[in-house]
Amino acid sequence: MESLGQVLKQMKGPSFLKRSQAIFDELLSDPIVKELREEHPELDHDMLRTNLPRLYQYVNDRRNCGNCPGLAKCPNDFEGHFSKLETSVLNGQLELVERKAPCSLQIAQQNEDQIKKRIRSFYVDERALQEGYNEVEIMGKDRLRAPAVNQVFRYIRDVKEQGLTPQGLYLYGSFGTGKTFLMSYLLHELAIGGYTGVIVYMPEFVEDLKSMLQDNQKLKDTVEVMKNCDLLIFDDIGAENISPWVRDHVLGAILNFRMNRKPTFYTSNYDLGGLEKHLSFTSKDGEEMHKGQRLMDRISPFVDVVHLHGENQRRSRN
């Protein structure tokens, strides 16, 4: 909608004054202005007339918001904001002050942006973090998943009420049962409460570590992020082709730092016994049971095990 200046800019002399007065009279009869005057009875006729441009902008913004087409198509001059009029006394004189206030959609978008800034992902499909979450849908997709879903919900609730503890979750189950999705939901919900989080897709992370051998600073920065974030999720652990160096010097260093400090979470197709066998064998050195056990000593005591039963959701979508 045109501003008052655009409406009047081509008018001069009597025609300008006449059109300006007509607009003012129309505004005075508008329910939006009547409501404003009820809230601020100190606003008299002369003050409103003096502040006609502000009044015009205020009414236009309120009308646009009343027929909101969505944030992306906001017709207001300042997208996602509306004009708000308030009175103020300056040097003993009453003044009408205009300021731009964010609408509810803008505030929600800003909050969501802040949540996303608290979450980092390494090699995880961004759709798992961005497609939105519906608790009823999460629970109702597959009744076999209900016990595991309830345990994840309970963990989230406990953290919101009591704060973080060093205890995380170990979520295991068959391929395609929604393990990554549930952990992403947990990350998102706790990020709303201000916690930072990192989710790492293990097979690709381990492969990329090979290139980081040539970039010590990148390796150091990556490990530091994983050490210090509030919530760390190793997604699909056990599916990677692990090497002694990754197991002992990267994973070992991260978990050694986090245990007794911050919670670490895991998704896997293996139970804890199967994961220990996986971590005990490398293509380079063969089976080293004590090395696998040593790493598991930094995992098992610091997780509650959650067995996720259910159907393959990916297959059911095809």
Rank of each mutant, 00 (worst) to 15 (best):
E95I: 12
L144A: 12
R143F: 13
L164Q: 02
P14Y: 12
N111W: 02
L171C: 02
F281T: 15
L55C: 08
Q21L: 13
F122V: 08
N260R: 09
Q293W: 03
F234A: 06
L8T: 03
N318S: 11
G140W: 00
D125V: 04
N60I: 13
R258L: 06
P301D: 02
F78Y: 14
Q217E: 12
F205A: 11
D77H: 14
D158L: 14
H290T: 13
D221S: 08
L209Q: 02
F153M: 14
R127I: 09
L48E: 00
Y133Q: 00
R54C: 05
S20K: 15
K210N: 13
Y123H: 11
F281W: 14
L171Q: 02
F24Y: 15
L43G: 01
A253E: 15
R261K: 15
L48Q: 04
R54I: 09
N111R: 05
N312K: 04
R258G: 07
D285Y: 12
L171M: 04
D142H: 00
G178L: 07
M289N: 13
P53K: 01
N228T: 14
Q167Y: 09
F281I: 15
R62T: 13
A148L: 08
N51V: 07
V206K: 09
E95C: 08
V59C: 05
K73M: 11
T50S: 09
S20Y: 05
I199N: 03
E161L: 08
C74M: 12
D77L: 15
K220P: 00
A72G: 12
C229Q: 01
L164E: 07
D208H: 15
K18Q: 15
E79L: 11
L43F: 07
L71M: 05
H278M: 00
S20H: 07
G197I: 01
P41A: 04
R145T: 07
Y195G: 01
R127A: 12
R143P: 09
T196H: 05
E98W: 02
S3L: 14
T165W: 01
V303P: 03
D235W: 04
Y185G: 03
L90R: 13
F24P: 10
L231I: 10
V198L: 07
L105C: 06
A239T: 06
D285T: 12
K34L: 14
V136D: 15
M202G: 04
T196E: 07
Q114N: 10
L164K: 00
A128S: 13
L96P: 05
K9C: 14
E137H: 03
N150W: 08
H81N: 14
Q10S: 10
M289E: 15
P102D: 05
S121Y: 02
E224A: 09
G92Y: 02
D142Y: 00
V33K: 04
Q21K: 15
L71Q: 03
L169R: 11
Y172A: 04
E38N: 14
C68D: 13
A101L: 11
E161Y: 00
G132L: 05
N111L: 09
P102Y: 06
V200T: 10
G252H: 05
